[in-house]
Design a protein around this nucleic acid. Structure first.
Lengths: 151, 151
DNA sequence: TTTTCAATTCGGAATCATTACGATTTAACT
DNA sequence: AGTTAAATCGTAATGATTCCGAATTGAAAA
């Protein structure tokens, strides 16, 4: 999703366009990785040295509620990324070294419901972790400032 | 896994058999659900009113390392359950109302590696959440003291 | 443009889960 | 029984997240 589309979605919902929100959305529009609240804080340290963590958390949560951001939980932290553009439901491969993600056009849920007669399925989580091609060859680069190894 | 098998595994590893460990393992042997550290604390409040949280966390972590317990992260908490007996790799359906789990004899990973040429896959997570048959019909029981709804 | 007001932000305190640590106790071996 | 490393306790520290009252501000109305 683009920055402009996210701003438009804010308007539609009657939410205000503030400098904080613009900066946060611009950041996610330019960085496809999953970022935590403190990642956001660091990335915006120059533009907004005094942005409150409350502001960051509050906005990340509301953006996720508006489907502007996607949310997951990784290594005990809530992490967010810009909502993917692709149409269908899908999942992600996440590089634990650099944080890059790859969309997986695959969902196992169609096979699951048959295994759970009588149950109501409300949600599911499927994520694959590893090292992307660039990070799996020891020598190659890892994006700066992006160590995302699991605890 | 039974209590006896877990104790045997402790011996094999040269770990001591202590009253704390016995109580924790007995609890997991009798309750198939995913339990957090504070769930354990509450459940053992009568037997061990003064068991330190440090003791609980330390033991849960080491039991998970010995494959006595399985670990997951749910609603921002680390949760543990007795390791399943079944042979093969598998995943779980978790009832968000009562915490009961159902094993899913299915893993999507065989289809995934082909989609990620050049990447090294190190781990994955697949979980299905919902309401089990007993909890999906509004009237029916939910196990006492076991509200596990996501935040 | 000024006024207005609810939405937003700030800063710091509070909360919750988890980990760390020094002092004490204890299981298991001799 | 004595020895010793492992385990436990109690508490303090940490880190992520949420809460809250006071101050600010975006955007619609006057």
């Amino acid at each position: 999703m683009t920055f402009e589309e996210a701003i438009r979605r804010l308007r539609e919902q009657g939410l205000k366009r503030t400098p904080s929100r613009e900066s946060i959305l611009r950041l996610f529009a330019s960085d496809g990785r999953y970022l935590s609240a403190s990642d956001v804080r660091e990335a915006l340290a120059y533009e907004h040295p005094a942005m409150s963590l409350d502001t960051i958390y509050r906005n990340l949560s509301s953006f996720a509620g508006l489907d502007i951001l996607e949310e997951t939980e990784l290594g005990g932290e809530r992490k967010f990324r810009m909502h993917c553009d692709r149409d269908g439901h899908h999942h992600h491969f996440i590089c634990m070294a650099c944080g890059r993600t790859e969309e997986l056009d695959l969902c196992p849920m169609d096979q699951v419901s048959a295994l759970l007669p009588g149950s109501v399925i409300e949600d599911h989580k499927f994520e694959v972790y590893g090292r992307c091609p660039a990070c799996s060859t020891g020598a190659d680069a890892e994006l700066p400032g992006s160590t995302q190894e699991k605890a």
